[in-house]
Design a protein around this nucleic acid. Structure first.
Length: 439
RNA sequence: GCGGCCAUAGCUCAGUUGGUUAGAGCACUAGAUUGUGAUUCUAGGGGUCGCGGGUUCGAAUCCCGUUGGCCGCCCCA
């Protein structure tokens, strides 16, 4: 039987699965629109070099990449960030600021599948370009929260952990680490939650034994869970940069609290996010039970547009994947039921009545009603059964008796009531039913 | 790239120490029911038992390989 299988890690969406996916996308799109973001789209296939420039040569092992017939090295997109940076960079001078854009798109990574991870997946990506201040972070974190809360998820279900690579940088510099060591230390911090003390192994291998005093301070810093603790930790360290940064923190947390989102956001310096292109605030969303992998991640990346060869452009963005998010909805029983797609089912007596029904069926469809009917003659009982299963609210009955009288019988499937209307008033009667919601 | 478990109908699964033509429920199609709905009854379609090889008189069953799936490690933009 199974002569051809789908490729490993790729998904097929049968209608009920696609209905669930569409429901998620619909709410995400609606939320993005209410936050004033504009939707864009871009190619699935990109030059391989775009990703190597951003992430380094090693990235190729994780990509679906090949040489096309023109000899070009290409790759299926594994993420949207480099692409959207190019879009913005190309037209930076003509775009109104702030640039608030989002997309819902499919991505491909050549990886081993796991729970919540496949070789293809969808992501909502939202980014703000051109705004260096925390006002941009405010918008994006608020929108991220609403993208979840819109489904009925609450602060009991998920939360956003907020951290700051800038502050980490300032702090580690103050401890006497140079830039290379700071980056090594940040990658240790990133892994500390999972590995514990072993997270420092790479650092020690690369830079030699770690001073116990420094290590103790790093461990204390990554356990910071509040603005007050943060202020205490840096209070002894001089410098305007640090003072200004603390002001940013107060403003951002104040903004989010003013939006009523305080319960969703937690200061957490254990988060720094792996790859190095983030330059400021970083954040990740997790389920409260801690059972799933990260639901969303984002942060500020002010230097990436410039790195790709365009003018400098401040930027903040986040991405939410569909797979882990769908798992969370399922866990909390918030997966929507399949929505029936029929408004009206037309019951047809036989071939003679079919011709009469066809005219009205087409007219009703043209008027925007979702109308279905049996393609071939069926017993009446069977047709009513199909009508009920279709989820239709109304059945229109085109039988020999009705047509002889010049009427159509309308049956309200919910309460099984019936009445007859003259044939030329069918459209009006149907419109009344659906606009009034009654009768 | 590494490790553990698994693979029988569209789905969930039975299938005895290796033994005749591989089963059930659900789902699907049709009939009972030629003008009125979720029940019931009956019938039907659908499987080269993931694929390939080996052992055997005989393999869904035992052995090897392979592909795929789930879970974990690495990674996670």
């Amino acid at each position: 039987m199974a002569q051809f299988q789908s490729l490993p890690g790729f998904r097929e969406f049968y209608p009920d699965a696609l209905a669930r996916r569409n429901h998620i996308f619909r709410l995400w799109r609606q939320t993005a629109n209410t936050f004033g973001f504009q939707e864009y789209d871009a190619p699935v296939l990109e030059p391989l070099e775009l990703y190597k420039t951003k992430s380094g040569d090693e990235i190729e092992a994780q990509l679906f990449s090949f040489t096309d017939k023109g000899g070009r090295e290409v790759a299926l997109r594994p993420e949207m960030t480099p692409t959207v940076c190019r879009l913005v960079g190309e037209k930076a001078n003509s775009l109104k600021r702030p640039i608030k854009w989002f997309s819902i798109a499919e991505f491909y990574r050549y990886e081993r599948m796991q729970k919540g991870r496949g070789r293809c997946f969808f992501q909502l990506n939202a980014d703000i370009f051109g705004e260096p201040g925390v006002e941009a972070e405010t918008e994006l974190i608020a929108m991220l929260v609403q993208c979840f809360a819109g489904f009925g998820l609450t602060a009991e279900d998920f939360y956003v952990r907020l951290s700051d690579r800038n502050l980490w940088f300032y702090y580690l510099e103050a401890l006497g680490l140079d830039e290379v060591r700071v980056r090594g230390m940040l990658s240790a911090v990133d892994r500390f939650e999972k590995l514990g003390d072993d997270a420092f192994k790479d650092y020690v291998t690369q830079f030699g034994a770690l001073d116990e005093g420094v290590k103790a301070k790093v461990l204390a810093f990554l356990q910071i869970k509040s603005l007050a603790a943060l202020e205490t930790a840096v209070s002894g360290i001089p410098g305007d940069k640090l003072t200004a940064r603390l002001a940013d923190w107060r403003k951002l947390l104040g903004n989010l609290a003013a939006m009523g989102l305080g319960g969703f956001v937690e200061v957490d310096f254990g988060v720094v996010r792996g790859l190095a292109y983030y330059t400021g605030f970083v954040f990740e969303a997790f389920d409260r039970k801690g059972e799933l992998r990260a639901l969303a991640g984002g942060g500020r990346y002010d230097s990436l547009v410039g790195k790709l060869g365009y003018g400098e452009m401040p930027a903040v963005g986040f991405g939410v994947g569909d797979m882990t998010f769908a798992l969370l909805l399922e866990q909390r029983g918030l997966t929507p039921a399949f929505v029936p797609t029929t408004d009206i089912y037309v019951v047809i007596g036989g071939e003679a009545e079919r011709a009469a029904a066809f005219g009205d069926i087409f007219a009703l469809r043209a008027a925007g009603f979702r109308v279905d009917y049996p393609l071939k003659d069926l017993a009446f009982g069977k047709q009513f059964k199909v009508a009920a299963e279709s989820g239709a609210k109304l059945a229109l009955i085109y039988g020999g008796d009705e047509l002889a009288k010049g009427v159509v019988k309308i049956r309200v499937l919910g309460d099984r009531s019936e009445h007859e209307v003259p044939r030329d008033q069918v459209a009006a009667a149907v419109r009344d039913f659906f606009s009034g919601g009654a009768e």
